[in-house]
Each structure stands twice: as C-alpha cells, then as structure tokens.
C-alpha cells in the first residue's frame, strides 16, 4: 500500500526550481532512500512533506488524505515526523527530557492537570518516563539520561534526535542525512537502528549521502538531480542507471 504519495510537486525559490514536478510513491513498511548531489532539492522535498514549506503546485497525500500545505504540527499529528539536516535538539533540556517532549502527541496533560497533579497525570508521567528510557536504550544513550543535550558528542546528538522522533510514534519517519558527522562505528549502529525501526513497522524515508548506508538499508531508492526525479527503483537497479551515473559523475551538467 502507498503510504505517502507526491503528485507533480513543485517548489521554486525565485528563478530556481528546487523541486520540479516530482512524483514519488513511498510504500508502507520498509525503507526508501532519496539520494542526489548537493543542492538537488532533497531537503526541500522533506520541508514540503513535513509542512515547513508549501509547494507552489502539486499534491501530497498521506494514507490517502490530502495534507498539502498543512502546518508542521498538523502533519506531525497525522503521523509524519522528521529530523533535521542540522540537528535540532532542545539544547536547554536533558537527554531524557528531549525524548519526553517527543511523547507530546500521545499524551494529554494540560495546564490544569499539571497544577493539580491528578492520579491520571502522575500515571501518564510514569509512562512517559518509562518510554523515554526505553528509547534511550534503543539508541544506546542510556548511560547519561540527565546530561544536558548540548553536552553530547555530535553523533550522539543525531541518535538522540532520532530517538526523540520515535517517541512521537510516527507512521512515517523522515531522516535528513542521519549519518552526517558520524564515525564509521556510529554509522554501523545507525544502519542497524534504521532496519530495526522499519522492522517495528515504521516506514522510513531517508536522505543520505553515505552510499554504503543507503545500500545496506534501503529497499527503494529515488534519485533527485536539479529538482527532478531522474531514477527510482531497487538499489541494484538504480546503481546501474545511466542518468544516475551521469549525475554523480557530473556528465551533462557544467
């Protein structure tokens, strides 16, 4: 079943067409990778899907519902959660609290329940705490839950951002270059985590330059170049595709 469907989605910045009439279907379950040279429009594509930017034309459907131009919080509520190319942690909060914020969508407590600390609120807090610790364990950050997020090494920050996104229980997880800045070891761990996430039933859409990671994790690859989708298919096929080879070797473009 198609979970996410982009139909002729276009986004311009002045004269530049950052995303040019892209059609893309992401199947439910599994991992889809979006690759392409710098400036190909990958992050812009994520911004359009997650509501941080609006398309100039085209439609975006999620689970059959039109989500085009909805604000980010509404799209997150619908079940799409993203990470950022430049890590966006809550630097002022502890590692554990970062993940607790991720639980926002699946908890209810408001102003009054916070002030009164009802039994239900306390139970909810316990559940959030347990879930947060479980996710810390999942990404291997359980050693220092009270540490301020800003004190983590870069690779750990990336893992924390992913764990925080998972706390929101997305149906579709968008990862923008999760391996950027990671060591070889950390990338390996990330690779395993991505497969595990997909294994638990969360669909993953991944932007990545690290080809090894892409080949190890992706079931399907879409290739963008100058805003256009130039290829799509299973890894083995995409690797052999002449336009992809040309784009990566710079043939045909000055």
């Amino acid at each position: 079943m198609t979970l996410l469907s982009l139909q002729a989605v276009t986004r311009r910045f002045g004269g530049l067409v950052a995303v040019d009439a892209v059609d893309l279907d992401v199947a439910e379950g599994g991992v889809t990778a979006v690759i392409g040279p710098n400036g190909a429009g990958k992050t812009t594509l994520f911004n359009l899907v997650s509501g941080f930017q609006t398309p100039d034309s085209g439609r975006i459907l999620f689970a059959g519902e039109d989500i085009t131009a909805r604000p980010p919080e509404a799209i997150a509520t619908a079940g799409i959660v993203r990470t950022f190319q430049l890590v966006q942690l809550f630097q002022n909060l502890s590692v554990l609290e970062n993940i607790k914020v991720g639980c926002h969508l699946h908890t209810q407590g408001g102003l009054w329940s916070a002030l009164l600390r009802t039994r239900r609120t306390r139970r909810e807090e316990q559940e959030v705490e347990a879930r947060a610790r479980e996710l810390l364990q999942f990404v291997g950050l359980e050693a220092a839950p009270e540490t301020e997020a800003s004190a983590l090494a870069y690779g750990q920050q990336r893992l924390l951002e992913i764990a925080r996104s998972l706390a929101a229980r997305p149906r579709l997880l968008l990862l923008d270059e999760p391996a950027a800045g990671l060591s070889a070891d950390e990338t390996k761990r990330l690779s395993g985590a991505i497969r595990a996430i997909a294994g638990r039933g969360t669909t993953v859409l991944l932007i990545e330059h690290d080809m090894k990671l892409v080949m190890n994790t992706a079931d399907t690859i879409a290739v963008l170049d100058f805003g256009r989708k130039i290829a799509e298919g299973p890894p083995a096929m995409v690797r052999e595709s002449p336009p992809v080879i040309a784009a990566y070797l710079g043939v045909g473009h000055a």
């Binding site: 980010p72 997150a76 990470t83 914020v101 951002e161 996104s165 929101a168």
Partner: peptide, 10 residues
C-alpha cells in the same frame, strides 16, 4: 530550545 523541532513533534 527550537521552535522548528517542537512543531515537528506536533
């Protein structure tokens, strides 16, 4: 901490 990250989490 980050308005964008907050919105991305709903």
């Amino acid at each position: 901490g980050s308005e964008d990250a907050a919105r991305a989490l709903g």
